[in-house]
Amino acid sequence: MLGKRVIGRRVNRDEAEKPFWISFADLMTALMVLFLVVMGVALLAVTKNVTERERKQEQHRKNIEEIMRRFEEAAKRHEGIKVDKQRQVIDFGQRARFAFGDWRLTPQQEDVLRRFVPEILMLANDELGKSILKRIVVEGYTDKTGTYLANLNLSLQRSQKVLCTMFATTGQSLLSDDQKEQVRALFFVGGYSFNAAKDTDEESRRVEMRLEFLGVDENRTAPPASARNFGECALR
């Protein structure tokens, strides 16, 4: 009888412990499944974000290539003007070449610039242009003759003269007030002294327009409203 009672107690104790261990195992299994689900969702979210960012970057690259192609097509309609896709600049070549130590352009050179600018504005302000083009920097260059600071000032004068040409009130192919307003909002002046000099001094005395592009998800800043008081150029 005693033996039977002892055996009976052991059986009852084992049976009492079984529900606890089964419950603990189920809990660990549930936690593991929950962990795997959470990690799966996290990895999916990260992958989705990376994929979306890569898609935007690829579309951004294609947009730049497309607008550069359009600028190149526009330049072909004007003899002597070229587009360097690699450097992303508009090179006017002989059409905007300066004499030694001078910042002035001939009336013919000014006419060429004013006839090409409306095409730039049209491309810059269509749907693609507004989504990708940030601004256009007019960069003047000099040859290596003279001091750095003197040439820096001369290169700035050459850039400024190109902008002044766009705001001229006399001469051929004058821009309208609407176009001048767009020029003021889009164009900037830069000077580069004799940095990036060409093979010859004559080729170095030039002006280029460098295209700067918006970053991914960046928007072009709207210019502040202002009266159309453009003033007069200080360079004569």
Results as ranks from 00 to 15, higher is better:
77 R>H: 12
77 R>P: 04
80 G>H: 13
82 K>L: 13
82 K>P: 07
82 K>T: 15
83 V>L: 10
83 V>M: 05
84 D>S: 13
84 D>L: 05
86 Q>E: 12
86 Q>V: 12
86 Q>N: 12
87 R>A: 11
89 V>D: 06
89 V>T: 03
90 I>W: 06
91 D>H: 11
92 F>K: 10
93 G>P: 06
94 Q>W: 14
95 R>N: 06
95 R>M: 04
95 R>D: 05
96 A>T: 11
96 A>C: 13
96 A>V: 14
96 A>P: 04
97 R>G: 05
97 R>W: 08
98 F>I: 01
99 A>S: 13
100 F>H: 15
102 D>N: 14
103 W>R: 13
104 R>P: 01
107 P>C: 08
107 P>L: 03
107 P>N: 10
108 Q>G: 10
108 Q>A: 14
109 Q>A: 03
110 E>K: 01
112 V>Q: 05
114 R>C: 02
115 R>G: 04
116 F>Q: 02
116 F>K: 03
117 V>W: 06
118 P>S: 03
119 E>A: 15
119 E>S: 14
120 I>N: 02
120 I>P: 00
121 L>I: 07
121 L>V: 05
121 L>W: 00
121 L>R: 01
122 M>I: 13
122 M>F: 10
123 L>G: 04
123 L>D: 08
124 A>R: 00
124 A>V: 06
124 A>D: 00
124 A>I: 02
125 N>S: 13
126 D>Y: 08
126 D>S: 09
126 D>F: 07
127 E>H: 10
127 E>S: 14
128 L>Q: 01
129 G>L: 02
129 G>P: 06
130 K>R: 14
131 S>W: 03
131 S>L: 02
134 K>M: 10
134 K>S: 11
134 K>A: 12
136 I>C: 14
136 I>V: 14
137 V>G: 07
138 V>G: 02
138 V>C: 12
139 E>G: 05
139 E>K: 12
140 G>W: 01
140 G>V: 06
141 Y>S: 11
142 T>S: 09
142 T>R: 00
142 T>N: 02
144 K>Q: 09
144 K>R: 12
145 T>M: 14
146 G>H: 02
146 G>Q: 03
146 G>E: 07
146 G>R: 13
146 G>L: 13
147 T>G: 11
149 L>Y: 07
149 L>K: 09
149 L>C: 09
150 A>P: 08
150 A>S: 15
150 A>W: 10
151 N>S: 08
152 L>M: 13
152 L>D: 04
152 L>N: 10
153 N>W: 04
153 N>F: 11
153 N>P: 12
155 S>P: 09
156 L>K: 09
156 L>F: 15
157 Q>M: 15
161 K>P: 02
162 V>K: 03
162 V>M: 07
163 L>G: 00
164 C>N: 03
167 F>E: 01
168 A>M: 05
168 A>Q: 02
169 T>D: 12
170 T>H: 08
171 G>C: 10
171 G>K: 11
172 Q>C: 06
172 Q>M: 14
172 Q>W: 10
173 S>N: 12
174 L>F: 06
175 L>Q: 09
176 S>I: 13
176 S>C: 08
176 S>T: 15
177 D>L: 08
177 D>M: 03
177 D>R: 06
178 D>G: 07
178 D>A: 14
179 Q>S: 09
180 K>A: 10
180 K>G: 04
181 E>D: 13
181 E>R: 06
181 E>W: 08
182 Q>L: 14
182 Q>M: 15
183 V>P: 00
183 V>S: 00
184 R>K: 12
185 A>S: 09
185 A>H: 01
185 A>Q: 01
